[in-house]
Simulated assay, not measured.
Amino acid sequence: MTNKIAHGGGITAAARHYGGRPEEWLDLSTGINPNPVALPEVPVSAWHRLPDQYLQERAREAARSYYRSGDILPLPVPGTQSVIQLLPRLVTGGSVAILSPTYGEYARAFTLAGLRVRQVATIADLTADDRLVVVVNPNNPDGRMLPVDRLRDLYERQRQTGGILLVDEAFGDVEPDASVAPYAASMPGLIIFRSFGKFFGMAGLRLGFVIAEASIMARFEDWLGPWAVSGPALSIATSLMGSDTTAIRDRILQRRLALETILRRSGLHVAGGTALFALVADERAEGIYTHLCRHHILVRKFDYARNWLRFGLAPDEEADRKLAGVLEPDYFRAARPKI
């Protein structure tokens, strides 16, 4: 069995190791909006009753408008992680190719299902035997972005061989024009995953959406079983996806600019990222990670790239000052490796 993957958000474990109470730590280890939006009013009936068809339909209509998916009503799911676990059921024969490095749960899910997994660096490395191709766009953790035209070409390539293309747009809300969702109705065999919690700052709600042809979404819905998404989650999504999200987007971009400014002033190389996180490449990454933890700041490190650290967004200017103070240039001069 493959090992469990260490994700961001492990504040409790970090506090046990480095001290301090979890609530005192600054958590920059996730790619989630650090300023969750205000909760809209949730009808008492959404808490009291099992989610009925009306709630589902309203949420799906709101998602269609928000994601601009045309004739397709996106399927609400209890977080996209839940449907990643189901993906192996769609693959019969051949191999699965994952444009890598990327979110590690894809490779883990396919490997645990006994499928042949190929982690490829470029589209040029794909073969006709790849029955399903996974592209996270924009990518986690390096922010790689394939343009829509390139994705449509890749879809046509998969279609000609009877394969499936999965595009994970979990970090795509800030750049809606980079989404392939508006073309999905004319692209059978394309699957799109969208995350609700990252952009709205509500990861704990555990809500995502699948955009695909009706037969594929029906299979996911059947596999998930009845009442997979809670009534309050559907109600909240309906309200927020139907609202003006300009202020949310602007605040995220302001926070991202503040983060990048701190990192660059500290002499760190920002090698990539998205609106919700920045990827730093530095040979001293392990030492920097420990230094930050000792000051109760958690970032994300990677076992497959020891020189990488991913910094999520800080919630406000006070947190900016804390991060900037810990990343004082004097520390880096002292930590510079001897040559």
Score class of each variant (00 low, 15 high):
residue 290 T to H: 14
residue 310 R to Q: 08
residue 39 L to P: 04
residue 49 R to S: 07
residue 308 W to A: 02
residue 306 R to A: 15
residue 122 T to P: 00
residue 48 H to L: 14
residue 107 A to H: 09
residue 155 Y to G: 08
residue 126 L to K: 00
residue 198 K to H: 11
residue 251 R to E: 08
residue 64 R to P: 10
residue 316 D to N: 14
residue 48 H to Y: 11
residue 246 T to W: 13
residue 250 D to K: 10
residue 280 V to N: 01
residue 229 V to D: 09
residue 251 R to W: 03
residue 231 G to L: 00
residue 161 T to V: 11
residue 170 A to E: 10
residue 25 W to K: 02
residue 331 Y to D: 14
residue 215 S to M: 08
residue 283 E to R: 07
residue 65 S to A: 13
residue 20 G to A: 15
residue 45 S to L: 14
residue 307 N to V: 08
residue 321 R to A: 09
residue 265 R to Q: 15
residue 104 G to D: 14
residue 282 D to E: 08
residue 204 G to M: 04
residue 316 D to V: 06
residue 85 Q to S: 11
residue 205 L to H: 03
residue 339 I to T: 07
residue 177 D to E: 07
residue 255 R to F: 01
residue 46 A to D: 14
residue 82 S to E: 12
residue 22 P to K: 03
residue 81 Q to R: 03
residue 224 L to P: 06
residue 273 G to S: 14
residue 9 G to M: 01
residue 128 A to G: 06
residue 213 E to I: 04
residue 195 S to I: 05
residue 104 G to Y: 10
residue 318 E to D: 10
residue 266 S to M: 04
residue 158 Q to G: 02
residue 284 R to W: 02
residue 261 T to A: 11
residue 217 M to T: 14
residue 303 D to W: 11
residue 226 P to S: 01
residue 317 E to F: 01
residue 192 I to V: 15
residue 20 G to D: 03
residue 135 V to R: 06
residue 86 L to E: 14
